[in-house]
Nucleic acid binder design. Structure first.
Lengths: 346, 346
DNA sequence: CTGAAAGCGCTTACAG
DNA sequence: CTGAAAGCGCTTACAG
């Protein structure tokens, strides 16, 4: 029954024969109100088809129940899953999570941030877009709004971050390749303006060093962190002489692209060339061949970030410790059998 | 410089030596204010680090600038892309779009809807979760809030919908298979409680009928509309004797799953068995083999829905015509060469 | 061109 | 246990 305009607590009050204070109190589930009165009010609420005006409430209360999640690329299942994981915990904490996408565009990110702030969010979790400058976030933070970075961090920023153990993941993955007998191992994808890039390349380098292999700078090939980037990176890698026999990829998307690139050249991933990815997206296990990858527990990281935010909001602080999530190497078929046997005996 | 608490227009007014009405007017870009005064005010706005309180404004204006997009599965790139397409047009229309995920869960959907309504959204675009009952939406709609369904529709609902031409898409795809010489063609995935299912199966049936082929009911195999569903559906299909030689899949996810299932049985998609998908997700062209699929122009449909919503909000109406988007069959390699030649000559 | 006043729909002390 | 009053931060007629 929609009357003209929306019903307010005043309509309910009139209908139930009480004051609007009383209505507000039952709306908040206060135990002050006598059960009889409360149920009379609740009945009236039903009858007028009331919908709570949270904006009005927040205005008065001076703190909102909404948080913003700003994601660099929602069409990437990896980040979508992250967002969904966070959403779940907020939802069940009675917080309204707003998901916004920046499409890896800093300008867009600025707009999104502005409108979230105007909306009165009480916290922000963000996976910053490429090329983001730290100062915008520092300003928000010094304004008192808690912020957490997830998955990505900014070089000169004191914003707390929740991220996987990138160096260790890359170290493990590269060591796996070395263990299979590979010596000329490329690193594919990513750009030096991302902190993650340095972390992963760092792990890769350490693994090589730990096994006494000199890193060939030319085999560290930068590129977009998506399929297309992987396809062109593998092209570049294969052009070298002697060509690498394996590649550690920046992420799974790059790995998928690299596999396609390999096939285009008539090579079989897992057979003629070993590939390892990073992220372990859902698709990895269904790929042909199934992709060996570094699992980062996306959902877990998302939940962790959400809980951290909840705590920060409760405590009224903008600071928190970083959280570096454990990773694990999931071995599947994309690295094939040990090269030591197949190649050396040839 | 954040002072204690947030700065309000009153702080600005004091600083600029004007009334708060004047501040409000320059905030709204009114031409009534003398340029000199306006710039003085703008300077003060900068100085106090003011952030606009949209909630307070909306409370007074009685209409908000936020719309809600409720999506059944954000981790499915198809829907993520849809959401992102809509977001883009809202953003540039000065509307704040909130993306919410229901994870295909009607209960969750109910919660999401409630909180969006409490937030005062002036419109809702939704891709309903499986098992959704129409009445919740009818109630919202009769309350005056415009709603549009995208991609999916509800059987007994008068909510306007924006969706691709499903019957025609399935017709085209099935006809393509028939044109290649296939006669035993399965339909894989989906459930009869989805309107889309009937539309697509309908197109499939019509194509068979148009070519004088009797539809084998047993070859219409229901299942989840994801990879897993595709894997088990193809298993079932292959168990029949005589087995089908081709399959029209409910969507690309099912098609990918079916391909994996085929390989598990030692069959090669595109070689030993023809597969066609629906949606033409980004991944389709990079798959091995590249997937023949029905392209639905996801982003375009999203933009269309967003524009429709913008118009409905402006016009203050909850009704609008449906929009059925054109589709096109993208032929790639997953249907291989014509069966007439390869099989018959064998 | 600018200001004073009322009001949007709530919540929160404060009385009683 | 319940009501009257003030106020959150804006916008919008209405004067001047």
């Amino acid at each position: 029954m929609a009357s003209r305009g929306k019903a307010t607590i005043l309509d309910i009050a009139r209908k139930a024969g009480v004051s609007k204070s009383t209505v507000s109190l039952v709306l908040q589930g206060s135990t002050l109100i006598r059960p009889g009165t409360a149920s009379r009010v609740r009945k009236a609420i039903e009858e007028v088809g009331y919908v709570y005006n949270r904006g009005a409430a927040n205005l008065r209360k001076a703190h909102s129940n909404v948080v913003g999640m700003v994601i660099n690329d929602l069409t990437n299942p990896f980040f979508a899953e992250l967002a969904v994981g966070m959403e779940r915990v907020f939802q069940s904490a009675g917080i309204v999570p707003f998901i916004a996408n920046t499409a890896e565009n800093p300008v867009r990110q600025g707009e999104v941030l502005k409108s979230l702030l105007e909306q009165g969010v009480s916290g922000l979790i963000v996976s910053p877009a490429h090329g983001t400058l730290p100062d915008a976030f520092e300003r928000i933070r010094s304004g008192g709004t808690p912020i957490i970075f997830v998955m990505r961090r900014l070089a000169e920023s004191r914003v707390p971050v929740v991220a996987p153990d990138n160096p260790w993941g890359a170290f493990l993955a590269t060591s796996h390749l070395i263990g299979k007998g590979h010596r000329r191992i490329a690193f594919l994808g990513g750009f030096p303006d991302m902190v993650v890039y340095h972390e992963r390349v760092g792990g890769y380098r350490e693994a090589l060093a730990a096994h006494g292999i000199a890193a060939a700078e030319a085999l560290i090939i930068q590129g977009d962190t998506n399929r297309k980037g992987g396809m062109s990176a593998i092209e570049t890698a294969l052009a070298f002489n002697p060509a690498p026999t394996a590649a550690m990829c920046f992420n799974d998307a790059v790995a998928f692209g690299a596999m396609t690139g390999l096939r285009k050249r008539g090579m079989e991933p897992g057979g003629d060339f070993a590939i390892v990815g990073f992220d372990d997206v859902a698709e990895a296990q269904h790929y042909m061949p199934p992709l060996t990858s570094v699992a980062v527990d996306t959902a877990g990281l998302g939940e962790r970030a959400a809980h951290m935010m909840l705590n920060m909001i409760r405590a009224g602080t903008t600071r928190a410790g970083n959280h570096i999530g454990a990773i694990s190497l999931i071995v599947r078929d994309s690295c094939g059998p040990d090269v030591t046997e197949t190649r050396r005996s040839a």
